[in-house]
Amino acid sequence: MKKKINWPNIYLFFVFILLYLPIFYLIFYSFNSGGNMNHFSGFTLENYQAVFEDKRLIGIVLNTFLLAFLSALLATMIGVFGAMMIYYTKKRQARNTLLSFNNILMVSPDVIIGASFLIFFTFLGIRLGFSSVLLSHVAFSIPIVVLMVLPKLQEMNDSMIDAAKDLGANAWTVISKVIIPSITPGIIAGYFMAFTYSLDDFAVTFFVTGNGFSTLSVEIYSRARQGISLEINALSALLFLFSLFLVIGYYFISQSNMSKKQRRLRKQHEEVAHIL
């Protein structure tokens, strides 16, 4: 008896190949001693050595991470309070308007955000550099933090707040002892997303970075315009490993963030999966 070919899985397999081939192509040639991405001449770690010896590149990597760390921190603080403000806006109409405004930066194309921030900074006379990039990154990360925290506020048990107030807690105690602890998973997820937004951004940074300051994306862009340099390949391999760690982290965060309803639905899906 001939075994039935599983076409759906073959299709999925090809999609995965398509998605990963360019990335592994980059990593593969990072070990090439030939100096180009056309012909593999021999195995070497020279390109990795070059990355670690390139003081400028290492500086830019550190800058990029510092920027991501700081911008995510600030965006999370502002975003958490923003989410609370939206949550405690009881008028439906007002709340929806606030949410729409919150989402403007999420749907706007990067070039528009970059160009309008550039006009904004020039208008205010803020010098382009680390501070303008930091402000922009905080600005475009806030909405995602709000969107990650808001569902956690909605899941929160409001009677706990009433209880805390009845027992004599003031507003700040309620916030720090009741609200913040119960939305912590959302805060962590929000920080995480803000961090990766900052790390990944190219277009907005490109507009507001000026001359003195550069992030990794901007640096890769300017090097790629000059052609192939296997140092970039080596760097991409290192970054890929880092993303892998982030993704694993994100997987665990999203698993613990899953609501009961989602879990139940998932189980039902598994039950009917064989029908079609």
Binding site: P22, L26, T196, L216, S217, A224, F240, L246, V247
Partner: peptide, 10 residues
């Protein structure tokens, strides 16, 4: 999660 520029570069 892999930087967009790196994919273009590939």
């Amino acid at each position: 999660w892999v930087n967009l520029l790196l994919k273009a570069y590939a």
